[in-house]
C-alpha cells in the first residue's frame, strides 16, 4: 500500500510542478500581456480593464493560486483571438488526436508483434537480422519525412488515399477512417521499432524457460507455443514501453496533424503559438502534460500490479 501511496504522491507533485511551470510560461512572458491582448488600438481604460480581469496587478503567488483554482474547476480562460473558451476548444479537438494515437498504436502493434515473434523464434537468423536492420534504419527517418513519403506514394502517385483533410465521424465511418490511414501509418511505421525490440528480447528470454521446453516435449505445435505460452508472459515490458513512448507519440502527433491538416490538439497548439494566443497555448500545454504524466503513472502502476517483483525493488535501482 505504501508503494501505491508513494507513487500517487509523486504523481501529485509532478502534476503540481508541471502546472506551475505552465502558469509561469505566460506569467513571465517578456512584454506586457495586457498590451498584447488589447492590441495596438486599445485605450488606457481597456488595458486597465484587461489587467484587472486577468489580475495582472496582483502578487504572482496570488495569481497562481487563483489560476490553479480556476483550472481545477475547468476554467482555462477564454481565447482573446477567437473568443472561444479554451477548455471547450481543447475538448472539441481531443477526439481527433486520441483517434490518431489509437490507430497508430494499433498499426504499430500489428507490425511489432509478428515481427518480434518471428525474430525471437529465429533469433540470429537472416530474417532476424534483416528485421533488426530495417528497424534501425527506420528509426533514422523523422516522422515528417515518413509522412511526406507516404503522401508522395499513396496520395500523389497511386492516388489511393486523400493527402490531407479530415471528415468528421458523423459523416460516415469509412471516409473518417480513410483520412486517418496515412497519418496513423506515418507514426506507426517508425514507432513500431522500439516495441518490436522490447518484445523480441523479452521473448528470447521466455523461450529459454523450462516450461517452453516442457510444452515442446509434449508435442505442441510451434505456433501455438509462440502465440499462447510465450507471448503473454513476454508482453509485460511491452505494456510499459507503450506507455512510456506516449510522449514521443504526442510529439509526432503534433507534426502529423499539421501535415495532414487534422484538427487535433497538436494543431490547435501550433496555431495558437503562431497567433500568440497565450491562454490557448497555456491550456494546451497544461492538458497535454497532465494527460501524459497521468498516463505514464497509470502504466507504472499497472506494471506494478502485473508484476509484484517491482513493488519490492528499491526505489532507485
Amino acid at each position: 500500500m505504501a508503494f501505491y501511496l508513494r507513487k500517487l504522491l509523486r504523481l501529485a507533485a509532478v502534476v503540481f510542478t508541471a502546472s506551475a511551470l505552465t502558469f509561469l510560461l505566460v506569467a513571465l512572458l517578456p512584454g506586457d500581456v495586457a498590451y498584447e491582448i488589447g492590441g495596438p488600438d486599445a485605450t488606457a481604460e481597456q488595458i486597465a480593464a484587461i489587467r484587472a480581469e486577468m489580475g495582472l496587478d496582483r502578487n504572482i503567488a496570488l495569481r497562481f493560486g487563483r489560476w490553479l483554482a480556476r483550472a481545477v474547476a475547468g476554467d482555462l480562460g477564454t481565447s482573446h483571438r477567437s473568443g472561444e473558451p479554451v477548455l471547450q476548444a481543447i475538448v472539441s479537438r481531443l477526439p481527433v488526436t486520441v483517434e490518431l494515437l489509437l490507430f497508430s498504436q494499433l498499426i504499430a502493434l500489428g507490425l511489432a508483434i509478428p515481427a518480434a515473434i518471428i525474430s525471437a523464434h529465429k533469433a540470429g537468423s537472416a530474417i532476424d537480422r534483416s528485421v533488426a536492420s530495417a528497424g534501425f534504419a527506420t528509426l533514422s527517418i523523422p516522422s515528417y519525412v515518413m509522412a511526406l513519403l507516404l503522401i508522395f506514394a499513396f496520395a500523389l502517385r497511386l492516388q489511393l488515399l486523400p493527402a490531407t483533410g479530415y471528415t468528421p465521424l458523423s459523416e460516415g465511418i469509412c471516409p473518417n477512417l480513410k483520412g486517418f490511414i496515412l497519418p496513423s501509418l506515418s507514426i506507426a511505421l517508425i514507432e513500431w521499432v522500439p516495441l518490436m525490440r522490447v518484445l523480441r528480447s523479452d521473448m528470447i528470454g521466455t523461450l529459454q524457460e523450462d516450461y517452453i521446453l516442457m510444452a515442446r516435449a509434449k508435442g505442441l505445435p510451434t505456433w501455438k507455443i509462440l502465440l499462447t505460452d510465450a507471448l503473454k508472459p513476454s508482453s509485460l515490458t511491452l505494456v510499459t514501453v507503450l506507455g512510456l513512448q506516449i510522449g514521443h507519440w504526442i510529439g509526432a502527433a503534433v507534426i502529423i496533424e499539421m501535415i495532414y491538416a487534422l484538427p487535433g490538439i497538436g494543431r490547435l497548439l501550433v496555431d495558437a503559438i503562431f497567433s500568440r494566443d497565450f491562454l490557448m497555448v497555456q491550456g494546451c500545454v497544461l492538458v497535454i502534460t497532465v494527460a501524459y504524466v497521468v498516463i505514464n503513472s497509470a502504466v507504472d502502476l499497472l506494471y506494478a500490479v502485473l508484476d509484484p517483483r517491482i513493488r519490492l525493488e528499491p526505489k532507485n535501482g
Binding site: 509532478v14 510542478t17 508541471a18 505552465t22 510560461l25 513571465l28 512572458l29 506516449i246 510522449g247 514521443h248 504526442i250 510529439g251 509526432a252 503534433v254 507534426i255 497548439l269 501550433v270 503559438i273 497555448v281 500545454v285 497535454i288 502534460t289 501524459y292 504524466v293 505514464n296
Partner: peptide
C-alpha cells in the same frame, strides 16, 4: 520532473516563450 514533460511540447513551449 523534466522527463515528465512530453519533449516536443516542452520545446514548443520554450520556443514560444
Amino acid at each position: 520532473t523534466i522527463l515528465a514533460f512530453p519533449g516536443l511540447v516542452l520545446l514548443l513551449a520554450i520556443g514560444f516563450y
